[in-house]
Structures are given as structure tokens and as C-alpha cells.
Design a protein around this nucleic acid. Structure first.
Lengths: 216, 216
DNA sequence: GGATTTAAAATTATAGATAAAATTTAATAT
DNA sequence: ATATTAAATTTTATCTATAATTTTAAATCC
């Protein structure tokens, strides 16, 4: 029953590095040296290399053959790309999850949403946000889709923590409320449309931040 | 210049194994032993392990810690999942690519489509099919989206070669024609809807194969 | 003084070897 | 004969060491 926590050294290094990259500890484009992390984690370079390959697949680092790996750089175009991919895939997931959403799940989602509104910092808010999305999408029963969405969430979080979008408010939680309301009323099309708009909002420039809430 | 072909041993092993898994050489669920392939490719097991990690990210193998990797098993549910993800992402790509599609590109797509119709076997047809999709989607200028679509194409091809769907006909190339026609007339919504239906068709049971062409 | 070539240092990629874990096989007891 | 336990073998995961490549630095030449 306990899901494999991937207790291997490669797994631990992968998780630790992913978290630090998302948190913005390394500048985009900076080199990641395998020997350095091998020493830091008290391991050899082999598991570090395997961790690099996993991070590469997640899009967190880019690897040039024989030149090592660098932290993936992301410009505004890539942020919007990730947002659009998320919108497309989360809508798909919601369409399949909606029929299986029970009242209990929606209540739990509402509680998570409240926690997000009271979050003291961006970090806590992002965690609540991710939990909210995951909770209402997971019942779709499509594992490959869920991992793809998870990877895109990580990329989004990286942007969120980068300070690119500085004035962090919690207004998107209003979108969450609207989504929950639509789901309770079995208005799946409305819920999907709101979710799409909500997800794409993260890639919009700060100045137009209200547009996405007024436009249909 | 131009040596981003990943000339590393890890890259070669990854491509070779991916091709063989897609071709159905290994039974789904069968174990892949690293020492075996290390010997076969005349390499050590380290690059084999790195290749495994890449294949894992592509969804071609699954890895249980300390138990090795197995060829990913796919049931009909997973095939449909991949088809729906492809539909969602390819529609997104087409929407961004459409404005940049020139007449020359569409002519080339038509030539590829003809080649697909004259393909002697499933293998050649799939290659033409993949080239067709890639050609009209690549101008979207979203690299992350394109690699995601490529991975899903690989999973689809695996199903196609598995003999699950045996009676292979080339009727989907009619869909290709319809897509090209709509693109030439700048009817992007029609093109997107046709593409979505076309991609999802691969996951439908054989008996209902005509449904997707008659339904709107 | 600036640019080009050469040498040195750092880093990646691979190989061979070792330890730990799991699966298989064998043996014993019921 | 079947089930349970224990030994043996196979396989994975990791480490240390070596070879090859790239980057950095210096030195020489124009």
C-alpha cells in the first residue's frame, strides 16, 4: 500500500535537486557539475548522472552531450507554452474526473482552497494550489496524464518562485471557488472553461492581470 | 556544428532500444536486464542504465527500485489515454502553427500523405503518418509541446505495431486530406476538430471504426 | 596591444569491480 | 506431497579508477 518512495540514492538526489531548482536556488543557465553534487550527497557521480537524466526529462535541466547539464532557462514564451499545455491537459483530466467527483472530495478541495487563501507566503500558497488541482483531477484515472500535469506544475512553480511575477496576490483562489461551484452544479463545461482560463492566467503579463477575470 | 544527434553511447542505446520496444520485439512486462544489453552493445552497464532512465521518462519502460526495469505494459485504457492526450496537445499545436503554415508546407504535407497511401506495410505508413503530423505542427514554435507529442506518437506507434488493431487500412489518410483542405481555406476550427477526431480514432475499438468518420 | 595557437586544468563519459537486495532453488519438516 | 525455511545464484545499485573531450589559461606571434 505504501507507494514506492524511491529510496534509492538516485531518487533522493533527483528529488532534492528538483526542489532546489524549482525554488530558484540555481540561476537559469548555470552549470550543474556532477562531481560537486556527488561530493555534496556523499555519493559517486553515477547516481548524480542518472538524476540529471530524470531532471532532463522533466524539463528542469538541459543537457548538451559532452558539455554537461545546465539549469533550464525559461523566457516568457516558454512560461506561456507551459501554461497552455497545462490548460489543455488539465481540461482533459477534469472532463474525465468530473463524473467521479464526490461531495466529500469537493469539500476537501474547498478546505484546501481556504488554506491557500490564508497562506503566509508564495511557497505555502503554491503548495495549496497544487494540492487543489491534484485533488479534483486525480479521479480521472489516467496516470500518464497526471504525471505530465505534475511536471508542468513544477515548471509553473519555478516561474512563480522566480520573482518574475512579483506582486503575488491570491485572487486566483476566486477561480477555484468558481470551479467548485460549477462542479457542484454539474456544469462541467463551465468548470472546464474556468479552469482553462485560470491556468493560462499565470503566463499573462502582470499589467493585464485583471483581463483574464473579466473576459469570458 | 550539427552534432546534436546525441552521438554518445547512451544516446545510441536509447534510440536502439526505443525502436525495438516500439516495434514490439519485447513482450510487454518482460524484464530488460542491463548486463545483457551492455554486452550486446559492447558497452558497460552505466550507459545502459542511463538509457533506461530516458526510456522510463518516455513511458516505454517502468522501473521498480532494486527490481530493474520492465517493458511498459499497455492495455486498451492506456491506449485511449494516450490518444486523448495526443488529441488535446496536437490541437493546441495546430492552433499555434496554423497562422505560420505556408502553401509550400501544405504541398509537402500532401506529398507525404500520398506516400502514406502507397505505403507497402504498416511500418512505412506509420512513418509517413508521423512525418505528416510533425510537418504541420512544428511551426507552432513550442519545443516542449513538440517533444511531448513525439513521445505520445511513439506510444501510439507501439500499439499500432502490436497487432492489436490488425486490419490496417489507410482510411485515416482521408482525414489528412480533410485537414489539409481546411487549412488551405483558413478554417482553423474545422481543421482542429478534424485532427482531434482523427487522433482519437486510434483508440477506438475496431468494430466502430467507421463511426469516427460519420459523426460530426 | 590584440589575436591565435598551444598547453594545462577541469569535467564528462566509460569501464571494471564490489556490495546489497531479490529471486530462484533446494532442503527439511509437517 | 505440500508448505515453509534456508542457502545459492542472479541482478541491481553503487563505487573507484581510467580515458577522452572541452574549457580555461598562458604564451607566442603579428
Amino acid at each position: 500500500m505504501a507507494h514506492d518512495k524511491d529510496d534509492t540514492i538516485t531518487g533522493r538526489i533527483t528529488r532534492a535537486l528538483a526542489e532546489r531548482i524549482i525554488a530558484g536556488e540555481f540561476a537559469p543557465g548555470s552549470k550543474l557539475r556532477q562531481d560537486h553534487f556527488a561530493e555534496e550527497f556523499g555519493a559517486s557521480h553515477v547516481p548524480v548522472r542518472e538524476a540529471f537524466r530524470r531532471l532532463e526529462a522533466q524539463g528542469l535541466v538541459v543537457s548538451e552531450p559532452r558539455r554537461g547539464v545546465r539549469v533550464a532557462s525559461f523566457d516568457i514564451a516558454e512560461v506561456r507554452e507551459v501554461a497552455e499545455m497545462r490548460a489543455a491537459l488539465e481540461v482533459l483530466a477534469l472532463r474525465h474526473a468530473a463524473p467521479h467527483l464526490t461531495g466529500a472530495i469537493l469539500n476537501e478541495a474547498e478546505a484546501i482552497n481556504r488554506a491557500g487563501e490564508n497562506a503566509p507566503d508564495v511557497r505555502a500558497w503554491e503548495e495549496a494550489n497544487r494540492a487543489f488541482h491534484r485533488l479534483i483531477l486525480a479521479p480521472c484515472g489516467m496516470p500518464r496524464l497526471m504525471t505530465a500535469i505534475d511536471d508542468l506544475h513544477a515548471a509553473s512553480a519555478r516561474f512563480l518562485f522566480s520573482g518574475f511575477r512579483m506582486e503575488w496576490e491570491a485572487p486566483t483562489d476566486q477561480d477555484h471557488r468558481a470551479i467548485l461551484k460549477a462542479l457542484r452544479e454539474r456544469q462541467f463545461d463551465v468548470a472546464a472553461a474556468t479552469l482553462a482560463r485560470h491556468v493560462k492566467w499565470i503566463g499573462t503579463p502582470p499589467g493585464t492581470k485583471t483581463r483574464s477575470r473579466t473576459a469570458s
